[in-house]
């Protein structure tokens, strides 16, 4: 029906406006696919130049990867919830509670294997609780997140008390430097990619995020797909809780505070809309987490004070939101994120 300029010779050449050109670039499918990676590479290249190469060393890279692991694991799991358009920012506190329970089990004389298992199971159970509230009882996910945020934070404080729950330092160091973290992370990441891209679940979740009514009319089992999504998110949260314990060797009462927001930030930085839908990707959270950590590390190494880093992050976030926003073709409205 509509012609493409290049294909019709007799059309007058029309000068494109900047906004139109921006739209064309943004509408390229490959753009949204490669943009986050390009962003990450750009940051690495930029700081490598600024620090005259010392940023681009194996040690720094490894440290960035290690830092991004907790947020990354959380974000990969939470993608399954964000994809359906649910805005859940309680992930950090769910992880905090799971870690606190795990640490409590350790304090009561259990070994580290039980601690790890309990932490993971707690993550899954707490997300099942969120699932019941938002899917079964139809409470809005943002509302569930607010409830979860305060409730879980308060329970964590009760468990931990005034001090911190300590886990044997040497044990944690061994676990952190050993293969356990990498292997478990790779297994989890692999599982998520598999479910997201090679089973109907990922496709169904995207559809639910795009248009629930359409998904319902296409006979998709919405509750089942979302349940699996929450389970995987719970698994990710539990795993992130384990990494949190072994990274610091202790659990304080403020563990996980504010991390839910970081997870959302990472997801958006990774090129995905926070409202889910067709453009969602399972790996977005992880690329986003890497980008944040690379940025933090780079800014620190250049000598930017940490208070300013927050501001820089804000500006970059704003830029991304503008680039990611979709403009309706006819009406001057703007759908953010």
């Amino acid at each position: 029906m509509k012609k493409i300029i290049s294909s019709s010779q007799n059309d007058r050449k029309v000068k494109l406006k900047f906004n139109d050109m921006l739209d064309i670039v943004k509408n390229q499918r490959m753009f949204s696919l490669f943009f986050p990676f390009a962003m990450l590479l750009l940051i690495i290249a930029l700081f490598s130049i600024l620090t005259k190469g010392s940023f681009c060393t194996a040690g720094v890279m490894k440290s960035i990867f290690n830092q991004s692991m907790i947020i990354g694991t959380l974000a990969i799991g939470m993608t399954f919830i964000f994809t359906t358009g649910d805005v859940d920012f309680s992930a950090g506190n769910v992880m905090g509670l799971a870690a606190a329970v795990g640490a409590l089990v350790y304090q009561n004389g259990q070994n580290i294997v039980t601690t790890i298992c309990v932490t993971i199971v707690m993550g899954i159970l707490l997300m099942l609780c969120n699932y019941t509230l938002s899917v079964v009882l139809h409470i809005r996910s943002a509302m569930v997140a607010i409830i979860g945020l305060t409730l879980y934070a308060s329970i964590t404080q009760q468990i931990v008390g005034a001090g911190t729950l300590r886990i044997d330092y040497n044990l944690c160091r061994n676990l952190e430097s050993g293969a356990f973290r990498y292997i478990s992370f790779m297994l989890f990441f692999g599982l998520c990619l598999l479910v997201y891209y090679w089973t109907p679940i990922g496709r169904q979740l995207r559809f639910i995020g795009g248009n629930v009514e359409c998904a319902r009319q296409a006979g998709i089992n919405i509750t089942k797909a979302r349940c699996i999504g929450f389970l995987l998110a719970g698994l990710g949260i539990g795993l992130a809780g384990v990494y949190q314990i072994i990274r610091t060797g202790s659990v304080s009462s403020s563990v996980g505070n504010g991390m839910g927001m970081d997870v959302m930030l990472a997801t958006v930085l990774g090129g995905m809309s926070i409202f889910g839908g067709a453009k969602s990707n399972a790996y977005s959270g992880f690329t986003g987490a890497l980008t944040i950590c690379a940025l933090n590390q780079g800014l620190l190494m250049v000598g930017v004070p940490s208070t300013v880093i927050q501001g820089v992050r804000g500006v970059i976030f704003l830029l991304l939101v503008v680039l990611n926003s979709e403009r309706a073709a006819t009406l001057p409205s703007r759908q953010q994120f």
């Binding site: 995207r206 559809f207 795009g210 248009n211 009514e213 359409c214 998904a215 009319q217 839908g277 067709a278």
Partner: peptide
């Protein structure tokens, strides 16, 4: 547009 299709998704999906 509101019930039969996910208009942001591709024709294929």
């Amino acid at each position: 547009d509101t019930e039969s299709l996910e208009i942001n998704a591709s024709i294929g999906s």
